[in-house]
Computed example of a mutant assay.
Amino acid sequence: MFHKESYLSSKEGNYQLVIKQLEALLHGETDQTANLANASALLNQFLSDINWVGFYLFKNDELVLGPFQGLPACVRISFGKGVCGTAVSEQTTQVVGDVNQFPGHIACDAASQSEIVVPIIVNDQVFGVLDIDSPNRNRFDEIDQKYLEQYVDVLKKFI
């Protein structure tokens, strides 16, 4: 019989494991590009039902495409535009169950139906965002948000 509590603890346990894997993977490495590339590859391997995972980096008042896994993506996103730009301007994680209902959504991949974007703030400055898309609606929940924010907190030590 399925028990929601065991599923949730298993999902949380898996996230805790991938965060430990991130720490081990990045330990001792100082190259920012290499660390972001490996961080996106690790999430791509770990997460199910996603079609894009990567980073946009804040440069000259806009987000510019960084290391990622998935199909080619939009290269530049204006501050405050789309889910990524909103995450940066509000400096809060955005969990969007249906991107088609998000005002100003930027459709880089028509297959994407839901999205989570975690802002990356380093020394009180916007560094960029972690962006993850899914072809399924309502793919991301509060557990994903909690642990992806922790993932970003660990990553910040290596960028």
Rank of each mutant, 00 (worst) to 15 (best):
N44T: 03
D31W: 03
N38S: 11
G54K: 09
N51A: 05
F58E: 07
C74Y: 04
F46I: 04
V64C: 06
Q32Y: 01
Y56C: 06
Q32K: 14
L65K: 06
A34E: 12
A41D: 07
L57V: 13
K81T: 12
C84I: 00
G54H: 09
F79S: 02
P67V: 04
N44S: 15
Q69D: 06
G82A: 13
R76N: 13
L57H: 04
C84D: 02
D31Q: 09
N38L: 14
R76L: 06
L43G: 09
F58P: 04
D61V: 04
L63Q: 06
P67I: 00
L63V: 03
Y56F: 14
F79N: 07
G80V: 08
I50Y: 08
D31H: 05
E62I: 02
L47A: 05
S78E: 15
F46N: 11
W52G: 01
P67C: 05
F58C: 02
G82C: 11
F68Y: 15
N35D: 05
V83N: 00
Y56E: 08
I77C: 10
G66L: 09
N44Y: 11
A41V: 00
S48K: 10
L71F: 11
N44Q: 09
L71P: 14
G80K: 03
S78C: 10
V64P: 05
N60M: 07
D61Q: 14
Y56T: 02
A41K: 15
D61N: 14
K59G: 07
Q45M: 08
V53M: 11
W52P: 00
F55N: 06
G80S: 07
L42C: 06
G66H: 07
I77F: 14
G70D: 01
Q69C: 12
D49M: 03
Q32I: 10
F55H: 08
E62N: 09
K59F: 09
A39Q: 03
Q69F: 12
N35A: 07
F55W: 11
T33Y: 11
F46V: 07
Q45E: 13
T33N: 11
V83D: 13
